[in-house]
Design a protein around this nucleic acid. Structure first.
Length: 154
DNA sequence: GCCAACGTTGGC
DNA sequence: GCCAACGTTGGC
């Protein structure tokens, strides 16, 4: 059973500092519109699981902190709102298609651990983040990989 | 069910 | 802004 995950976010949309300022330093992770990532959110991610927070499309692109899961998968209500960017006409309250979890900030890293830096580390040669063409915004991370990141980021 | 066209992600 | 990778859509 996987216990560690990585979530990507564009900091111009939602950054780790936004999370730090949020009520209870907690947020719902809405807007995932990919079936594989949806399955993780709905079925696999459990209370207390740890999450690496990653900034994509950013300067720098980097892992910036750690969160923990405080609520397991439930329907992503932003899919029901026609005025929301993440609206999906396929979605309905009776048959939710998209799911989210809630995460709480555990620790912002002392420094961002950049993608550039991660590429240099032999222990991370299988890290999914570094795989060519990986566009998943939610995916599992091995304990050893998670520990390596924590060691680097403080 | 195939697959070309199209849209999105995300590093650079 | 470019473009490679890849997911989705839709015609057939």
């Amino acid at each position: 059973m996987a216990v560690y995950w990585l979530f990507k976010s564009e900091p111009s949309v939602f950054s780790i500092d936004d999370l730090a300022k949020a009520k209870n330093q907690t947020t719902y992770w809405n807007g995932v519109r990919n079936y594989q990532a949806r399955n993780f959110l709905r079925d696999s991610i459990k209370m207390g699981d740890k999450v690496l927070f990653y900034h994509s499309n950013a300067e720098p692109t980097a892992v910036v902190g750690i969160c923990k899961v405080v609520r397991e998968g439930y329907p992503d209500f932003t899919a029901l709102d026609p005025d929301d960017d993440h609206y999906d006409p396929k979605d309905s309250p009776e048959k939710p298609v998209w799911y989210m979890v809630d995460i709480k900030l555990e620790k912002k890293f002392k420094r961002p651990v950049t993608l550039e830096e991660l590429k240099q580390i032999p222990a991370l040669k299988d890290f999914l983040l570094l795989k060519r063409g990986n566009r998943l915004s939610v995916f599992p991370v091995k304990k050893s990989e998670f520990d390596t990141l924590v060691k680097l980021g403080g």
